[in-house]
């Protein structure tokens, strides 16, 4: 697939590395080192910013506290719109962390010149352009909405599968597989495609021409973070309500 591009066009696109990983060994298991490095950087940055924002909480916010409060209000609104005033509060940390992590990962991948840091294999990029990350997040969302459904409705959650009619049973079961699949591949595909397009353009025309595409990439990255968080919230809300599965497919 895509990782064959460098092989085919290796004389021209010698620098384009796709599907190469920096392998770490942990107890006989393989890990993608470059993903963990950027993930820790992203998480570290978010934690440091949060610590700065909450170091001296004031009633009239200013500076970084103001910024992070804006982010928190945005996340709260997002969760409230999907889940509803009554139930949204316990889900704010999960949905908010999804949004912040994906958003900072995507923008970090697009804005930080990772290429300047050379690794023995592979290259540093947004953690979200590795399928493992996106599938992990999507599966967590699946777990989250199952948990939400069972906690809210108990064993009656299974009634959801034969709503509105038992004929829908196979489709409803299928949905539990398509949801994480579409979530993970949407994010993975968008971010990887954006990075590839930018990389290819940079190789072809190094100056100025890639800029519009990079701007578009920033826009897409933000949208994808929003979409992932919103859909997760929507799935959780749907699991708690039971009806309305058609709206958020």
């Amino acid at each position: 697939m895509l990782n064959s591009i460098p092989v085919l066009l290796s004389p021209i696109l010698a620098e384009l590395e796709v599907g190469k990983h920096l392998y770490w060994e942990l107890g006989g298991m393989k890990l993608h080192g470059q993903v963990f490095i950027t993930t820790w950087l992203v998480m570290g940055a978010l934690i440091v910013v949060s610590l700065f924002a909450t170091r001296k909480v004031e009633r009239i916010p200013s500076g970084i506290q103001n910024l992070m409060e804006y982010a928190l209000e945005f996340i709260r609104d997002l969760a409230k719109n999907q889940i509803g005033e009554k139930e949204y509060r316990p889900w704010v940390p999960y949905i908010g962390t999804l949004f912040l992590f994906i958003f900072v990962s995507n923008w970090g991948g697009a804005l930080v010149p990772w290429k300047l840091i050379h690794l023995p294999a592979g290259e540093l990029a947004a953690p979200t352009n590795d399928i493992n990350t996106t599938v992990a997040l999507a599966l967590l969302t699946s777990l989250a909405y199952f948990y939400a459904g069972f906690r809210k409705r108990g064993i009656g959650y299974f009634a959801k599968y034969i709503e509105p009619t038992p004929v829908m049973l196979p489709i409803n079961i299928l949905e539990d597989f398509t949801k994480p699949l579409s979530l993970s591949f949407r994010l993975f595909g968008n971010i990887l495609a954006d990075e590839l397009v930018v990389a290819v353009l940079v190789l072809l025309v190094p100056l100025f021409v890639p800029l519009p595409v990079m701007l578009l990439g920033l826009f897409t990255s933000a949208i994808q973070a929003l979409v992932f968080a919103t859909l997760s919230a929507a799935y959780i809300a749907e699991a708690m309500e039971g009806h309305g599965a058609e709206e958020h497919g």
Partner: peptide, 23 residues
């Protein structure tokens, strides 16, 4: 390759949950 699933996936999930708790 692009679709190279390995132990990154579960570790990422655990790491994300821990990160959410920390945040």
């Amino acid at each position: 390759g692009l679709f190279d699933f390995d132990a990154t996936l579960p570790l990422m999930a655990i790491q994300f949950v821990v990160f959410a708790a920390v945040l």
